[in-house]
């Protein structure tokens, strides 16, 4: 007897599999989300400007001109020569702002990359293996959460000296906690799904299960945390630089610009307001993007 699929076996719904693929669905929701689109556009524009800094910056951000100190921006009666004016050393403010975007984005990106790698490895291992691994990771997370980030970062930078590398390293090694917490919870949830049991019953190796069954299903949460932690790192860099223990002068950094401008704040408030506003816009845009990504990929949104 051969087994032909008898017609009475055929599911009546077989004829019309026309629904969108998960990729198509995601794309549709992605482009339909206004907050996400605004946030992503702002971040993209700032990213392009940062990458093209040598081309778009009107002046050398390090070139001092002591005869043209603290020129006001155009809209406060300045000249088009220095659109956003000059700082206390006569350096072009717009050019420093543009190069400062490089510092902020670089720190945000690399710190999130380092902390994301550490936190994801710990969280996924804890969630998947459970037991003693989970106990150790949970303990480490609690230890980390008990440490005040700014104070620890200040102490480390005070000992090692402030530089771009040190700031990136310190933030990268400090900001993994949210990655670990979120990835642990997501892995725990996905591990209980039957497709993971099915892969185990097939005899798939643990690395294979982690990479091809678990990871693709927790990636959405990872992306959300990456954006939020990028914003977090950018703000912390600005804080450290403002306190004089971050990126060191004459490197253009937004936090440093606020710090350098604060002495003249009462007389020339734009020295503080301009870098402050740009920082605010970047962090807001990244957070909008993160929130949007969470909305778009949230499971309750799925059909």
């Amino acid at each position: 007897m051969t087994l032909a699929p008898s017609t009475n076996n055929v599911d009546p719904l077989l004829q019309d599999i026309v629904g969108p693929t998960p990729g198509q669905q995601l794309r549709r929701r992605f482009f339909g989300h206004r907050g996400l689109m605004i946030g992503a556009s702002v971040v993209a524009v700032l990213l392009v400007i940062a990458l093209l800094a040598p081309v778009v910056a009107p002046h050398d951000p390090y070139a001092q001109d002591l005869l043209a100190r603290m020129k006001p921006p155009v809209f406060l009666g300045g000249t088009w020569e220095h659109i956003l004016g000059t700082d206390h050393l006569g350096r072009d403010y717009l050019s420093r702002l543009i190069y400062g975007a490089r510092v902020s984005l670089l720190i945000g990106f690399v710190a999130a990359l380092i902390s994301g790698t550490i936190g994801t490895a710990m969280g996924v291992a804890a969630g998947y293996f459970g037991g003693r691994t989970d106990a150790v990771v949970t303990f480490l997370i609690n230890v980390r959460l008990a440490m005040p980030v700014v104070l620890v970062a200040l102490a480390v930078v005070a000992i090692l000296g402030g530089s771009l590398q040190v700031v990136i390293g310190v933030l990268g090694l400090l900001l993994w906690d949210r990655f670990a917490v979120v990835m642990r919870a997501s892995t725990l949830q996905v591990r209980g799904r039957e497709y993971v049991s099915a892969a185990q019953a097939i005899g798939a190796s643990t690395p294979r299960i982690l990479l091809s069954e678990i990871m693709p299903n927790i990636l959405n949460n990872l992306i959300v945390v990456i954006t939020l932690e990028m914003a977090h790192a950018i703000l912390l860099e600005a804080t450290l630089s403002f306190l004089g223990l971050g990126v060191q002068p004459p490197t253009p950094s937004w936090g440093l610009m606020v710090s350098e401008g604060k002495n003249m704040m009462l007389f020339e408030p734009w020295l503080v307001l301009i870098p402050g506003a740009v920082l605010f816009v970047l962090v807001l845009a990244i957070n909008l993007m993160g929130d949007g990504l969470r909305d778009v990929t949230a499971p309750e949104n799925r059909s």
Binding site: P22, R193, Y195, E213, P216, N217
Partner: peptide, 9 residues
């Protein structure tokens, strides 16, 4: 609904 990985075809 839980035995097939939603990310795979």
């Amino acid at each position: 609904y839980s035995s097939l990985n939603p990310r795979k075809n």
